[in-house]
C-alpha cells in the first residue's frame, strides 16, 4: 500500500492553508493510500499545530528539536530522512520553503521528484500521472513517475480543494527520539520584514495593476492617469518592482502583497500563479492583454485583447467624459 506523508508548514502556531489541501491531493494519488501528517518544530507551537492536525489526519508524526524551531530546510531534510521510510511518497507545498527543501530531499531519498503539481490523474500500476504547468502557465503537461520506490512531490498551494472534515480523531506519534545528527552548514539568522511603502494597496477597493506589458517606465503614467480617473490605486506584478519602476509595497503576489479589492484591473499581466496567489476575495477581474492566449484570461471575469498603451488612455478619456 502506498504510504503518503504530508509535510505541514506552520507559522506562529498556525498551519498554512495547504495542510487542508493535502487530503484531496492524496486521495487523487491513491484513494487507498495511508496518509500521515508530518510536522517538525519545537515546543508549544509545534504541539498546538500537531494537536490541531489530529482533527484532519488519523496519524500525525511530530519531530521536536530546538534546532527545528525555525524551518531551516537543511535541518528539516535531515530530520525527515531519519524518521520517514525511503520509499514514502512525500508531499510538500510548492512555496518558498518547499522549493528550498524538496529537490534536495528527493535526491537524498533517492526518489522521483515532481514540482508544482496542480492535479493528479491516478495510477497505472505504480506509475502516477500528474498535471503541471510550464512557461508561466501558458501550457499544461502530463508528467509520469514510478513512485514504487518513493517520490517527493510539491503541490501548488490552492490547487486542491480544502477538506472540510475536522473529526478524524487522530493521534500524535512523537518521533523526536529517532532523529540523529542535525548539524548543518547553513545557519538561520533572522527574518527582515519587507519595507512598508507610502500607499497600502491591501486597503484599495479598486486596483489598476500593471505588468511587464507596460514596456517602459514612462508608460506608468498612463496607469496612474487611469487610476486617478477611476479613484483607484496603482499596483503591479513583480517584474515592475525588479526593474525598480515602482516600490516593493505595490507588488501583488506571493512574494508581495495579498490584496482583496472589489475590482482588479490586470493590465499587461500574464497571470502567473505567484501573481494570482496575491489576489484574494474573489474580485471582479478585468484583464487587458495583447495576447489572446494569455493565461490571465482563464481566471478573469472580463477579457479584452488590446494594447494597453493605447487602451488605457482611451479608457481614461472615456471615464473622464462621463
Amino acid at each position: 500500500m502506498t504510504q503518503i506523508f504530508a509535510y505541514i508548514p506552520f507559522k506562529n502556531g498556525t498551519a498554512e492553508d495547504v495542510a487542508l489541501e493535502y487530503p484531496a491531493a492524496a486521495k487523487k494519488i491513491d484513494p487507498s493510500a495511508g496518509l500521515t501528517a508530518v510536522l517538525t518544530g519545537s515546543g508549544a507551537d509545534l504541539d498546538k499545530v500537531a494537536q490541531e492536525m489530529t482533527r484532519i489526519y488519523k496519524t500525525v508524526v511530530k519531530v521536536d528539536h530546538a534546532d527545528l524551531a525555525y524551518p531551516n530546510a537543511e535541518i528539516v531534510r535531515k530530520a525527515l530522512l531519519d524518521v520517514l521510510p525511503h520509499d514514502a511518497v512525500i508531499l510538500a507545498a510548492h512555496d518558498t520553503f518547499g522549493m528550498d527543501l524538496a529537490p534536495g530531499l528527493a535526491v537524498k531519498m533517492d526518489s522521483a521528484y515532481a514540482a508544482d503539481i496542480v492535479d493528479f490523474q491516478g495510477m497505472d500500476g505504480s506509475v502516477l500521472k500528474m498535471v503541471r504547468q510550464e512557461l508561466g502557465g501558458a501550457v499544461y503537461t502530463h508528467v509520469t513517475a514510478d513512485i514504487a520506490l518513493g517520490a517527493v512531490i510539491t503541490i501548488r498551494p490552492g490547487a486542491f480543494a480544502p477538506t472540510e472534515a475536522a473529526d478524524a480523531g487522530g493521534t500524535v506519534a512523537d518521533k523526536s527520539a529517532e532523529v540523529k545528527d542535525l548539524t548543518a552548514k547553513r545557519k538561520f539568522l533572522e527574518v527582515v520584514a519587507a519595507e512598508v511603502g507610502d500607499v497600502d494597496i491591501t486597503k484599495a477597493d479598486v486596483l489598476v495593476s500593471i505588468g511587464r506589458g507596460i514596456e517602459e517606465q514612462e508608460n506608468i503614467e498612463l496607469a496612474q492617469e487611469l487610476a486617478e480617473a477611476m479613484g483607484a490605486v496603482v499596483s503591479c506584478s513583480r517584474p515592475i518592482v525588479d526593474a525598480k519602476w515602482l516600490e516593493k509595497s505595490r507588488q501583488v503576489g506571493t512574494s508581495g502583497q495579498t490584496v482583496k479589492p472589489k475590482v482588479y484591473m490586470a493590465m499587461g499581466i500574464s497571470g502567473s500563479f505567484q501573481h494570482l496567489g496575491g489576489v484574494k476575495g474573489n474580485p471582479f477581474i478585468v484583464a487587458v492583454n495583447k495576447n489572446p492566449k494569455a493565461p490571465i484570461f482563464q481566471v478573469a471575469d472580463v477579457g479584452i485583447v488590446e494594447n494597453i498603451l493605447e487602451f488605457m488612455p482611451e479608457l481614461t478619456q472615456a471615464i473622464k467624459s462621463q
Binding site: S111, A112, Y113, A114, K129, V131, E134, V139, Y140, T141, H142, V143, T144, A145, D146, I285, A287, F297, Q298, V299, A300, D301, V302, G303, I304, V305, E306, E310, F311, E314, L315, A318
Partner: peptide, 28 residues
C-alpha cells in the same frame, strides 16, 4: 524517473467573457 508525456491545453470551462468590437464599443 519523471517524464513528460505531452503538452496540452485543458478545457477550463468558462474563462473570461471576452469583450469584442471596436475599441470604442469595448470601452462602452
Amino acid at each position: 524517473k519523471t517524464r513528460r508525456l505531452d503538452y496540452f491545453v485543458p478545457d477550463l470551462g468558462d474563462g473570461a467573457e471576452m469583450l469584442e468590437g471596436s475599441t470604442e464599443e469595448i470601452i462602452e
